[in-house]
């Protein structure tokens, strides 16, 4: 029994570590955020989410009702519009090569990418 508990603990410990293996700094004019890749959710999450529970991670664990269909005219980014539809703060951040990506920010300031949010709304 003890060995089962220990192996479960070790599995969870190392798998969580592996999930956060790849981290990157994203920035805008006045903000810098360190985000890490979560392979379970296939999502970027604030680094803090790998140390303690955060709203972003909690959101990705369940499927949510999609917000009303947003107007995509003029080439608006569909994932970003889901984030706007959920009344979350939309943050455009740049990676080290200046490539841009939409992130949704929750009330605890944790971030996850808008693409991941879009995948859990139906």
């Amino acid at each position: 029994m003890k060995s089962l508990a220990l192996s479960t603990f070790l599995f969870l410990f190392f798998s969580q570590g592996a999930l956060a293996a790849y981290c990157e700094t994203f920035s805008s004019i006045n903000e810098t955020h360190k985000l890490c890749w979560n392979d379970l959710h296939k999502a970027w999450l604030s680094e803090a989410c790998f140390k303690k529970t955060c709203d972003s991670q909690q959101f990705l664990k369940k499927t949510h009702k999609a917000p009303p269909v947003q107007d995509l005219s003029g080439g608006r980014n569909p994932s970003a519009m889901v984030c706007h539809g959920l009344k979350l703060t939309l943050v455009i951040l740049k990676d080290g090569k200046n490539n841009e990506q939409s992130f949704c920010q929750f009330s605890d300031n944790s971030l996850t990418d808008a693409n991941a949010i879009e995948r859990v709304v139906k």
Binding site: S73, G74, G75, R76, N77, A80, K94, E100, Q101, S102
Partner: peptide, 12 residues
């Protein structure tokens, strides 16, 4: 860079 136009309808 690869741009992200967010909700701005100025794709052109």
């Amino acid at each position: 860079p690869v741009y992200d136009q967010d909700g701005a309808n100025i794709c052109y």
